[in-house]
Simulated scan of single mutants.
Amino acid sequence: MYAYWETVATRWKDNDVYGHVNNAVHYSLMDTVINTWLVRTAGLDIHDGDAIGLCVESHCVYKASVSFPEPIRVGLRVGHLGRSSVRYELGLFREDGETVVAEGHFVHVFVDRETRRPAGIPGPLREAMGELVIGDDLPRPL
């Protein structure tokens, strides 16, 4: 189950020569949904904030094909929230919210913008991430 949902349109250029959305696009969609949530909902200041999140790990398992112009429903949750790191877990679904297209994760380590040394996740950002931590009462796909 996922705590945050966003629908993302596929683009004409996302299809590869085999007629389906190319695997690299899945990573881009996951990265986009994570960072959209961080900026719009969690309040991450990507331009002037003291801490920034760097991706140190990513993974994707492909389950089904999808093609333009199908929209993709992306579910986001936090699987682990550490002092300076967070593991985001994502599910990519067909528009019905039931058929899994891919599942993956990204790990961000938060670092000081200047020194690039690990830094604690700032309080308001940590609180927002806490709302995405996996639990039994999370909403189902719309």
Rank of each mutant, 00 (worst) to 15 (best):
A3S: 14
P69K: 02
N15Q: 07
Y18E: 01
H108R: 02
T115V: 04
T32Y: 08
P118R: 06
T36R: 15
C55N: 09
V66R: 01
G97T: 10
T99A: 08
V61C: 01
T32A: 15
L90C: 13
I34G: 02
E131A: 15
G97V: 08
R116C: 01
E127V: 13
E114R: 15
L81C: 13
N22L: 06
E127R: 14
E127M: 11
N22P: 05
T32R: 14
E127W: 04
R87W: 00
G19C: 05
V17N: 04
V107P: 00
L132N: 06
S58Q: 12
H20S: 09
L92T: 11
I134F: 12
L125P: 10
H26C: 12
R116H: 13
P118A: 04
G135Y: 07
E131L: 09
Y4M: 07
E114A: 13
M129S: 09
I134A: 14
H108M: 02
S84W: 10
V86D: 05
R87C: 01
V33G: 09
S58R: 00
R83Y: 05
R73M: 14
I72F: 03
A128L: 08
E103Q: 14
E57M: 00
G123I: 08
F106A: 00
D96L: 11
T32I: 02
V111C: 05
Y62M: 01
A119T: 06
I72R: 02
G130W: 11
T99H: 07
F68C: 03
V74L: 13
G82S: 09
G53M: 01
F110Y: 15
E95S: 14
Y62T: 05
D45E: 07
G75L: 06
A3T: 13
I52E: 11
V111M: 03
S28F: 00
E98L: 14
A51H: 03
G53A: 04
V21C: 10
G82Y: 05
H80S: 11
N23H: 14
L132R: 06
V111S: 03
E114V: 14
H47Y: 11
C60D: 01
E89N: 12
W12T: 10
L90S: 08
E103N: 10
P69W: 05
V101F: 06
A24K: 04
R116S: 04
I46Q: 12
V56S: 03
W12N: 05
L81N: 09
V21W: 06
D136R: 12
L132H: 10
H59M: 02
R126F: 13
L38Q: 14
H105A: 09
V86R: 11
D137M: 00
S67K: 07
Y88C: 01
E103P: 01
T41N: 13
P69E: 00
L142M: 09
I72K: 03
G79E: 11
A42P: 10
V17E: 07
V78G: 10
Y18K: 00
D48V: 00
I134N: 08
E6V: 01
